[in-house]
Design a binder for these strands. Structure first.
Lengths: 344, 344
DNA sequence: TTTGATAATACAATCGATTGCACAAAAATA
DNA sequence: TATTTTTGTGCAATCGATTGTATTATCAAA
């Protein structure tokens, strides 16, 4: 009596002297089942707190209405807002969401994907890890017939749907803003260039310098600088330079933060001596001193769009769904770290 | 040829003119299979990129080696560190982790749990939502024979294992520190009292006041104040008081943040006019101005301990696993927001 | 009373794996 | 050569559901 048990459709059938098929149909309100039988089945099912086994059901049906989501980190504000957007749409459409984090590791990403492929998910949303150098594991989804939609950090060569923001435009807006704030020598903290979002931000930076006829200087570009630590290190190197830049465009908020803190520790004023802008609009940007100018990426909206696109593809019966790419417009949020003109 | 297909063990069997059982055994290195057969099966499996169907496998085996984790929010630093700790242990022990967030909603929590119960998880780790007022949905795990371990926000009346921190001790350390910094009237931003962690923090506050013979004043306790907004609101109310407190012990970092910002906006200096301490040691505490004194909860360690405890219970064959409660010691991190003596 | 239609339920195959048991062929022993 | 043992495979049941196709029972019409 004490042994815990999971009740099955067979248990209910046995108890009522009938068969599993009748019970199954009764629970589905199949009209071929008598009112009386339906009632007693439902009552017993309720009493036993019966719920169909997910594995058996999805095995039989060929789908478990589950969407997998792969993000580099769940605790990055941007990704957590994307996840919220995905959750909204998925819940509304009666899908479950299975969240995975790669911790920016390509190996972990590959392992997780292989585990998801064996029937755990029916569709996939992914943003690739920073250390990912090839996408063969993402190709597996196509081979298995599981729709895949990239968001934000997309693997561009792959012919699948993508939801991204216009990082190039965000970078252009940011650098223009710095120039208009009076900056003439603008350094750049760049992200890993094999990831589309970072490459586009760097392109926006370079093109905007050109647009204003400003000289591009290799030594002013710091590669692979997206963490607080590397941002701080870059700032130290900057401070050791002969000709100090008067502006920094960072591809991420964390590296911008590192730079600001390092500047403060070395008696350099932001924005008076150096104006700084970040990217991602992490919440800390509004509470640090000086508050950080950044680019908002509309995470929730991206999540909603990506989930909608994926579900549309999953539910379409079209043999070959034609991949679509949705580009969202980012928004420059101007705060103190870059405002040099107004008060000076 | 173009139709995407998922290969099964039957496909491999047919191709090699053998049966599914042989293929299954070959893939498992069963000694009853000849070297030759094993080799050709493995080769073909490799070529087709075959992986056993997770649903079929876990249905047959009765377990999918999956641990479910329910957290209120994945983007709270504390919870994300717990998740990392859980992931570490789970990965090492060859378990998968299924992350769910309740968004602090009891209904969402209940829905998610019901969906997890039907064979999606073999063990569960949970931290209850703020709005949860009864635990009947958590009781279901017991009825299904699925081990459950609470971490941090535990439902104390339930007789299951728990991993918590000594919130009482953390509060005591925090309030003592304020008193020693010279505070004589200490206000308190309290969390929802039906959640053990917040109740314990409030108890620690009250007892420490008593310990120092300080008067407890109902009007100095602000209930249900754990967000930045409510923290700010509480500070406004404080500033409107006749006798201003000279210290605030907040049950959370976000409300402490709201209070600090509100104080700054109103020309009140922290810590000179009012010393403030928070709880959770969110990363922003070290980058805001003034930096925030807080209590660290050892999230990763908690995650590791909870996962280990759960896995131990899952793998034990003991009929009735005797629940254990692990209590971790929190650590007071002293920063600027509470340091009144040293520099003044 | 016989036939035909209809309603309600049972039987059996299926989804993709695992595994105990039976069985054949080959090898070892008598 | 006859018998036993070993070795390698196939058959069939099982996990927990769903669903097409029997198969009854019931009742109305002829």
């Amino acid at each position: 009596m004490n042994k815990k048990k999971k009740y099955t459709i067979q248990d209910i059938a046995k108890e009522l002297n009938t068969t599993a098929s009748t019970v199954s149909r009764a629970l589905q309100d199949n009209p071929r089942i008598s009112e009386k039988m339906r009632k007693s089945v439902k009552e017993l099912a309720d009493r036993l707190d019966y719920h169909p086994d997910f594995r058996a059901l999805s095995l039989k049906k060929g789908s478990g209405r589950t969407i997998g989501v792969m993000v580099p980190h769940i605790d990055r504000y941007f990704f957590s807002t994307v996840l919220r957007g995905i959750d909204e749409v998925a819940t509304e459409m009666k899908y479950s969401v299975l969240i995975c984090q790669s911790f920016e590791s390509a190996e972990k990403e590959e392992l997780l994907i292989k585990s998801l492929l064996s029937g755990k998910v029916d569709g996939m949303l992914a943003s690739v890890a920073a250390s990912t150098k090839h996408a063969s594991h993402f190709e597996l989804f196509g081979k298995r017939g599981i729709p895949l939609v990239f968001f934000d950090r997309a693997w561009m060569p792959m012919n699948v749907s993508k939801v991204v923001i216009d990082d190039y435009a965000g970078a252009v807006a940011s650098v223009r803003h710095l120039v208009e704030a009076g900056c003439r020598t603008i350094a750049h903290l760049a992200g890993p260039q094999h990831i589309n979002v970072y490459k586009n931000r760097t392109s926006g930076y370079l093109d905007t310098l050109k647009e204003y006829g400003l000289q591009m200087d290799e030594s002013m570009i710091f590669q692979n600088t997206i963490t607080r630590e590397t941002g701080c290190k870059a700032m130290s190197e900057i401070l050791a330079m002969d000709n100090l830049p008067d502006g920094i465009f960072s591809s991420g908020d964390y590296s911008a933060l590192g730079a600001i803190i390092c500047a403060r520790e070395n008696g350099i004023r932001v924005p008076q001596d150096i104006a700084i802008t970040g990217f991602a609009n992490e919440p800390f940007g509004s509470i640090i001193h000086p508050s950080l100018t950044s680019v908002d990426q509309h995470g929730a909206e991206m999540g909603r769009q990506a989930a909608s696109l994926l579900i549309e593809e999953m539910e379409s019966n079209i043999e070959y769904f034609i991949p679509r790419t949705i580009v969202l417009k980012p928004k420059l949020i101007i705060r103190d770290s870059s405002q040099r003109k107004p008060n000076h």
